Amino acid sequence: MIEATTVSIVHDDAREAGRLAALELLDRLRRSPDLVILFVPAGLDGKQVLEGLWSRLPAGTQLAGCSAAGEINSEEVLSGSITAMGLCSQDVEFRTFKVEGVGADSLEAGRALGAQVRAFDPALLLLFPDGLQTNATQLLQGVLSILGQGFPVIGGLAAASDDTTSTIQFHDREALSGAAVGIGLRGRVELVTRARSGWTPAGTPRTCTRVENGTTVLELDGRPALGLYEEYLGERAREMPGVSIEFPLGVISGSARGADAMREDQIVVCRTIRGVDRERGALFLGAEVAEGAQVRMMRATKEDVINASSAAGGLACDAMPDPSLALFFNCAARKQVLGWRYRQDVQALFRRLGPAVPKIGFFTYGEICPVDGLSLYHEVTFTVALLRA
């Protein structure tokens, strides 16, 4: 059994916000938490938040989390809050992990983190890497190379604010940057995950015939990638590059060929377009695609995006109607696309779960969630994880 509660504090003083969050967690739990999961607004002074928290939290508590582009608690979606979940359990053990310098070699950093986690032998890993320097696909690949390809990893990449050039990762009493932190859960933990973007494929499959460094797509079907992409956008190409957030690429399952590649359910993950190189005709993606991979252009309305999160939540609840807690990792790009409607992305699921289920999450720079038993790195995707112990 896991006992959990979530608190959110909005305060101009980061240290005082941390102190108040700790006091409220202790009051609600009526005991010291074994673990605190922490999400703070990107751009806030993370060290000050920790000073406030640790002025009241006992030494035996563990803590992990990161900076966010928006916070989710048990009641609503917020922006600018210190949001923390305190957890206690006699049946499940928690352990926090960290690896620094993930930007230098994300694959090796993932292996190093995986080796730490393997020694603990958990049932599940929550992972919060830096969202600016990390090659998320390689980091995850490194972790899974140690823990096994079927090991469940959930989480999201730390976000930055418009006026900062770094993100924060919290590990116990440390506020780090350029790191990846994790939480291992050991014991009998049941997990259900679902991931949906709401974007649907349009047009025919295209082959990435020339890719540089995994994330720079130079050619699609032997043609300059940017030119082909702008042909698809039509008149909206004049809004480039800003409009590209609305039109990601969908990566088709490697086993799909011919007519199967045209099926909507063959899209495995989405990849955002972060920028362009007009001189080279290239698209800069938010995460890797392999040379030779098939992709399709994607599109969605605001209703499609909101309905997708509702569908993901419904499927998760059908599979686990009585979870101990719920975790949400939702992409900051969805928040940007939805505008003022971004809070609606979780409303249907909140109604389905009810107020008694403790909840926490944040708006990320990329999501990590298993699909069909394989942990994957996603973008522009709503992911939910329900846990029961």
Rank of each mutant, 00 (worst) to 15 (best):
G373M: 06
L147F: 01
L233P: 02
T164N: 12
L35K: 00
K302N: 10
G142V: 00
V40F: 13
F120E: 04
L127R: 04
S244D: 04
N135L: 09
D12H: 09
V10E: 13
E219Q: 13
I82N: 04
I183M: 02
S253P: 04
D91Q: 13
G86F: 03
D304V: 12
I168K: 10
V77K: 09
L132K: 07
S324G: 12
T134K: 05
A259W: 11
S255E: 14
G142W: 07
G86S: 07
L50F: 08
S106I: 14
K47Q: 11
G70H: 05
Q169H: 09
E379P: 01
D172H: 14
D221R: 02
V153I: 15
P241F: 13
L124A: 06
P41T: 08
D322N: 12
D265N: 13
G281L: 08
C270R: 01
V40E: 07
D13C: 06
D318C: 08
A119V: 07
I168S: 14
V77N: 09
G361V: 09
I273V: 08
G242Y: 14
R118D: 03
V189I: 12
I360S: 04
T383K: 09
D277W: 11
V251I: 14
S55L: 03
L23S: 15
E71K: 02
F362V: 10
G114H: 00
L147T: 02
